[in-house]
Amino acid sequence: MRAATIIFRREMGTYLQSIVGRVTGALALLLMGVAFQVFGAKTQLSGEMLQQFFWGSSGVVMGVSIILSVRLVAEERQSGSLVLLSTSPVRETEIILGKFLAALAFLAIILAVSVYIPLLIKSEGKITGAQIFVGYLGLFLLGSATLAIGVFASTLARQQIVAAVTGAAIVVLMLLLYQLSRKLDAPMKDILAELDLWWIHFQQGFMKGVFNLKDAVYYVAVTYFFLLLSVKTLEAKRWQ
């Protein structure tokens, strides 16, 4: 996994030094602040205020994750720099893992910087540190799953814009599964509801400060599934 570390370091350098990385980070923090102002101001209760903050932030996290991830492979393919990786003794798993972990680490930095908002709520209200932690864990896992979807879209496309549209379409489709499930009967209803990216696992769990292991397992599974698809797609395209 040495190559994954090397690729991780380069990608992190790009996020931290490039205009795109800085602007994306700043925009994410701005939108999370705006989400807090807009949704948090609807209530005087600190617990609800925190939930509203996580509600708005989850949208920001999904949007930012798509922006951060779709460039990872498609941009390199578009610029021709992917040839350096594809002709080096590096496994596809290492390429995908290095890139994904860098995006996830950058997202974690953005989330860490935004923690002042719930801390403000805590200082003035009656929420616990555990509620904040669980909510952030949910944002992190939701971000991880969305990043994996974005990476997969990136391996499919030659152009970033196509990757962005594909990634966003998959995310939207997975956000509609819960609504779709309500029109169906069991067992399809339960299956589709559990596959939904947000309603069951985030909105009814992490967002409310409730930690269910199955929610965490769901996000880890989605992340693994799309990363595996990414590796297989890159494998097929690299040496076809």
Partner: peptide, 30 residues
């Protein structure tokens, strides 16, 4: 791939990197 160095028609460069950091990256990959 360990025994090969390849320069395609369009050099596979990362424009934001310096020449030396890019070569160190390439050396690490190889």
């Amino acid at each position: 791939r360990k025994r090969i160095g390849f320069l395609p028609e369009s050099p596979p460069l990362y424009p934001e990197m310096t020449g030396v950091s890019y070569l160190e990256f390439a050396a690490d990959l190889r």
